[in-house]
């Protein structure tokens, strides 16, 4: 068990569809993108509320079936857009084309921000599976994901 709390993540059905569609469109490579939402609390304890205001599909600069790197200019655009609406980038999503929707050792070692949510979509089975996690100092905690209407 992890020792830190993870937010309840709220995605709309439309956002979920955009994420999954982008993952399929990226095959045979991994696909990736960013999540934006409101953040509350003082700087040292800032916390995403779990509400997702926007999803930003991005180019996988690695063009790889094994790794991803969010294209820097896509990140720049998403960052500017989310800040213009008073939100922040609160996480990243990517696909696992042939494995479980669970952070790989590479995902854990590459995790940049302890506040971020790391969402993974597995395309291994006929039905895509989406799960989300917090990763802090090598420790993984799963976030519940609920789909809201819209």
């Amino acid at each position: 068990m992890s020792s830190f709390a993870a937010p309840l993540l709220r995605l709309t059905i439309t956002q979920h569809e955009r994420i999954v569609a982008h993952c399929y469109a990226g095959l045979p490579d991994e696909a990736c993108g960013l999540l934006a939402g409101p953040v509350i609390g003082p700087l040292a304890q800032r916390e995403a509320t779990g509400f997702v205001s926007e999803v930003y599909p991005a180019v996988n600069a690695d063009a790889s079936a094994r790794t991803y790197t969010v294209d820097g200019r896509d990140y720049l655009r998403a960052s500017r857009d989310s800040e213009a609406r008073g939100d922040e980038i609160i996480g990243v999503w990517h696909s696992h084309t042939h494995t479980d929707p669970y952070p790989s050792p590479t995902d854990v070692s590459s995790a940049v921000d302890p506040m971020w949510v790391y969402m993974i979509v597995s395309l291994r089975d006929d039905i895509p599976t989406l799960r989300a996690f917090r990763i802090r100092a090598g420790e993984i905690a799963e976030c519940q994901v609920v789909l809201d209407g819209g």
Binding site: R66, Y68, L76
Partner: peptide, 8 residues
């Protein structure tokens, strides 16, 4: 300035 975002 933005962090590089990557994984596998």
């Amino acid at each position: 300035i933005l962090p590089a975002v990557a994984g596998g």
